[in-house]
């Protein structure tokens, strides 16, 4: 057994359909996250990045399930674990932050009480002690005047404060792995900056590992140490952030970098990726990116390229780039 905190191996997520083949949404995804690591998953809508994260949390939507593969947390398989046992891990071991705090918070319970619920259930604290923890957590996420704010309902708080409440709730039991699903996408740029600072500070203080799902390459660049790029259900490239963004090998990663405006290089021309991502039901055979790829050859549409090491710790799934560099 390795010292990895989380290992995902050959994960396949999809829907079982009576009398028809399973609809596969996330296909053969493997990655691992070490303790203290901050791992970003980047992809466009429909790439399967959020479902991958939800599979780790055991929060897949109804009808969608893990079809095969293995998710192991600290050496224990989560996929085969009874639901009750798994639920006990959520909070003290694994916690999650959602994109939209207004829908993730209960509108009729005061936020302090919602934060205190975790410590009461999982750490067995008394109501009073748990409330103290809640206020402490709120202070740590930079909420001014936490004693007063703990008595507020979610609707009385601004978007940035609500997201801090979500973070306070997630870290209240001191988890070792924090799952973040686009936590700053709904926030303004100044507030996003503040929330990212809070996350960064918490992870540095407690050694919590982070999986950070986003579509924003710049946010990953500033938040994460390692990353994977997903396209149409596959991880097409992974490695350290410096390697993947600085020396992108997969044509899709290169395309993303070329089409995103970079504030530090305003004079650069944007090069859009032609076409658009395949829909779930019409995924092409072979490499899903082939129809949009400038480098594509006939072999690309025959089989999904295997994931090859292109440099130490840096992988890409592309027959063209792997072939050139091997």
């Amino acid at each position: 057994m390795t010292d990895m905190l989380l290992e995902v191996e050959n994960l396949v997520i999809g829907m079982r359909r009576a009398g028809r083949p399973d609809a596969v949404i996330v296909d053969d995804v493997s990655f691992s996250v070490a303790a203290h690591e901050r791992f970003g998953i980047v992809g466009e809508s429909g790439s399967g990045k959020s479902l991958t994260l939800r599979a780790v949390a055991g929060l897949l939507p109804k009808g969608v399930e893990v079809l095969s593969g293995r998710i192991a947390y600290a050496g224990k398989s989560l996929t085969g674990m009874p639901p009750q046992e798994r639920r006990r891990l959520m909070g003290p071991e694994i916690a999650m932050i959602f994109q939209e705090p207004m829908t993730a918070l209960n509108p009729v319970i005061r936020v302090g009480e919602q934060i205190a619920e975790g410590p009461r259930r999982h750490l067995g604290l008394s109501k009073k002690a748990a409330n103290t923890v809640a206020i402490e957590m709120m202070a740590r996420t930079g909420i001014p005047d936490p004693e007063r704010r703990a008595r507020a309902y979610p609707h009385e708080l601004s978007g940035g404060l609500r997201q801090r409440i979500m973070i306070a709730m997630a870290v209240s039991c001191n988890p070792r792995l924090l799952l973040c699903d686009e936590p700053t996408t709904a926030l303004d740029v100044t507030v996003q900056h503040q929330v990212l600072k809070v996350l960064e500070g918490l992870c540095a203080d407690t050694g919590t590992a982070l999986i950070f799902v986003t579509h924003d390459l710049a946010v990953v660049n500033q938040t994460c140490t390692d990353m994977a790029v997903m396209y149409s259900g596959h991880i097409v490239e992974s490695g350290t952030v410096a390697d993947v963004l600085g020396d992108a090998r997969h044509p899709y990663t290169q395309g993303l970098l070329g089409s995103a405006p970079d504030f530090d290089r305003p004079e650069r021309r944007l090069v859009p990726i032609p076409g658009f991502p395949p829909s779930l039901t019409s995924r092409p055979a072979g490499c899903p990116f082939a129809p949009r790829c400038a480098l594509a050859v006939d072999d690309c549409s025959k089989a999904m390229p295997t994931t090859e090491l292109v440099a130490p710790g840096h992988t890409a799934a592309c027959i063209m780039t792997a072939g050139v560099l091997a």
């Binding site: 740029v189 100044t190 996003q192 900056h193 990212l196 600072k197 960064e200 924003d216 390459l217 710049a218 946010v219 660049n221 500033q222 963004l245 970098l257 995103a260 970079d262 504030f263 530090d264 290089r265």
Partner: peptide
């Protein structure tokens, strides 16, 4: 100063 950057190392 709040813009996430691609080139600068950190926030």
């Amino acid at each position: 100063d709040s813009i996430p950057r691609m080139t600068a190392g950190s926030v």
